[in-house]
Design a protein around this nucleic acid. Structure first.
Lengths: 213, 213
DNA sequence: TATCTAAGTGAACAGTCGTATACATACTTT
DNA sequence: AAAGTATGTATACGACTGTTCACTTAGATA
């Protein structure tokens, strides 16, 4: 038991500055900086360690980038979980999705901003990691959609098609919501309404869809 | 007349290296680099002039960024013009839009990639310029939509809502098409089909829409 | 022809960058 | 108590950065 506790404490300590590096990096990227414009020295200066100390936690900046992707997607997946647990009607579900989205954006601004900006950003390794994760999310969404009663007879290709459309719409709206001033509740509400309308409009077309298109 | 021609020639010459700076910058940003990761010296090295020569054409990198935004949006607006001239049925119009999109993407890869990546990129001045342009495009699109017969009684807010949804969907699909390998015609065709399906699905919902949502 | 100007050059500046290397320290394990 | 390991420090290196200043030159204007 002393073995386990001491070892875990050591690991916990190691995780400390490692986590601070991650958090500070996300915070710095939330402002006017992109990942490949972020320098190692700049980051370590902010964290309060000497530049070479960085290498105790990551072999290079690419490795940090991958850690940031992991961190950022943890929050995004929680939205899907929230929605999955919601068994109400489609109409209420749309409202629920948007509210869940806004809640998680508020709680994890920096993570969402990171995904948004680095999805097409300059670092190839980060960009590819984000896309892989988004593809996974899209697949998860398609599986969830397959469970809905009025989508039961849709084929897989069409499910993926609608999943990508829904996901694209939500990501675009999320980014717009990110940009509105934190205290501008009115502007935020307007964007939430628009996001709901986008989802509703898409879902309105679903019953009319014929698969041979 | 000699005054006009000589003056215009001088301006044309000035525009030469200025345009080369713009083109090379776009080309370099098409690869694994973001705008705020692009250095002045790197760019001038590529162009073949000495670093200080840059200042003969732009006061700083921000000014270059704005020029890049101008350049990139010139192509995007042509898509709208193409569509505007197309007076065929909705069904054919969708196919036409997607084809026009792909054609312009092929002709102006770098410009589209620039818009996509710097829309949420690190440079605030570039980011804001892109958003302003996109907002203008969205308004133009809303105006065009207002002319369609079955959208005649829609109010302005709803028109903007659907315009933003359509624009978001197209931008997202454009970016995916950008990423597929240039010679992968099969993959490109699949993405074109999906883009068409997205548009069709959205338009299917339109007649069902009730404005009080 | 003489003058003016846009465009490009070259040297120099004070910084910042990533990283290698060697050393210090605190905590675990044996 | 001894040895080992994870973490952080100090120094140093060559390379690259944006920008300054003074200089050249080719072409347009007067």
């Amino acid at each position: 038991m002393s073995t386990r506790s001491s070892k875990s404490r050591r690991i916990a300590r190691r995780g400390d500055t490692r986590q601070i590096l991650i958090d500070k990096a996300l915070a710095m990227l939330d402002g006017d900086k992109s990942f490949d414009g972020l320098s190692l020295r700049e980051l370590t200066r902010e964290v309060g360690i000497v530049p070479t100390g960085f290498y105790r936690h990551f072999p290079d900046m690419d490795a940090l980038g991958l850690a940031l992707v992991d961190e950022a997607f943890r929050a995004l997946r929680k939205i899907l979980e929230d929605v999955r647990e919601d068994t109400r009607s489609t109409d209420r579900l749309v409202t629920s999705v948007v509210k869940s989205l806004v809640r998680h954006i508020r709680a994890n601004r920096a993570g969402f901003a990171f995904i948004a900006s680095e999805r097409f950003g300059g670092s190839a390794v980060v960009r590819n990691a984000i896309r892989r994760e988004l593809r996974l999310v899209q697949t998860e969404l398609a599986v969830d959609l397959a469970r809905l009663p009025y989508l039961k007879e849709w084929n897989t290709a069409d499910l993926h098609m609608i999943a990508s459309l829904l996901l694209n719409a939500m990501v675009a709206n999320a980014i717009d919501i990110l940009d509105v001033d934190t205290h501008d509740r009115e502007g935020e509400a307007a964007l939430m309404k628009r996001a709901e309308q986008h989802l509703r409009l898409i879902l309105l077309g679903v019953p009319q869809w014929k698969t041979d298109h």
